[in-house]
Write a protein that binds this DNA or RNA. Structure first.
Lengths: 142, 142
DNA sequence: GTTGACCTTAGAGTTGTCTCTAAGCTTATA
DNA sequence: TATAAGCTTAGAGACAACTCTAAGGTCAAC
């Protein structure tokens, strides 16, 4: 049976975060010592590691809560429920990537068109673009 | 002179957001009507449009505050200050993209290895991966 | 028996960007 | 003149995922 900071050290989270996860139903200590200390058994540790792994992959705490409830009773959930959660996450990641790619292109083009020298910013091409509502349509990167 | 909701309609922000930006020093109304209504002149509108354009590109409000202070007195700032802000933003975007790409790869691989059928989740390969600490080292996508 | 590390709780604070509410004043329209 | 739309302010609430604090109890070592 591990105490909270032992579990924390083992899975690489702070004790604070573990309590926070507990409050949100993700991690639990199946026992308490006489003095009220949380005590984690092997199953608790596995569950905590599951949470950490899912978090590392990028699942939200809410996603993880759903995954845990499936994990808790695998036979009454379908495999599809798991892939749905995973696919939704992938779509979300794809959406964010597309946004970031757009930003990346614009920022790169702003930098390409500006030498960034030590002269003053009176004719700075980046400020001009910002003043003119963005990159011109002509020659815009798609 | 535009009132707040006229400005809002013009640049595509809510009046709420414009007041919020004002509180953070990004947008200002150089005049008030007798009754206290904000009144925006052409320069105010240009400034607000600058803010909106920069926000669309993805600059944070803090970035924009810096860009605005340069814009306000271009001759006492160097072009380099502007490119520095832009370059930092690009680096930040690149970092986030790398994170998202890693997530994308893992999620795709999880989905590849799981048929996601309606059968129950007893042998769900995704749950297994999560239970085993992540994708195996052998064959890991770099 | 004292020090210091560790544990407990409830709850507040952080970050960034809004978004909304309440309570009341102003302006335009019918 | 009545009504509705629009404006004002200060301040609260939302979101995610922590992060920290205060005030105190517990435990191991010396």
């Amino acid at each position: 049976m591990l105490k909270i900071s032992e579990l924390a050290g083992r899975i690489g989270l702070s004790a604070h975060t573990i309590r926070f996860y507990e409050k949100h139903g993700l991690i639990e200590a199946s026992e308490r010592s006489e003095s009220g200390y949380r005590l984690y058994n092997a199953a608790d540790v596995n569950r905590a590691e599951f949470v950490k792994t899912a978090r590392n992959i990028g699942f939200s705490l809410e996603d993880i809560a759903q995954l845990l409830s499936i994990r808790l009773d695998r036979s009454s959930h379908s495999c599809q429920e798991v892939t749905d959660i995973t696919r939704n996450k992938l779509h979300e990641v794809n959406r964010k990537m597309a946004e970031l790619e757009a930003m990346q292109k614009v920022l790169s083009r702003l930098l390409d068109n500006c030498d960034g020298g030590l002269e003053n910013a009176t004719h700075c091409s980046i400020l001009e673009v910002l003043d003119n509502g963005g990159l011109a349509t002509t020659g815009r990167v798609n």
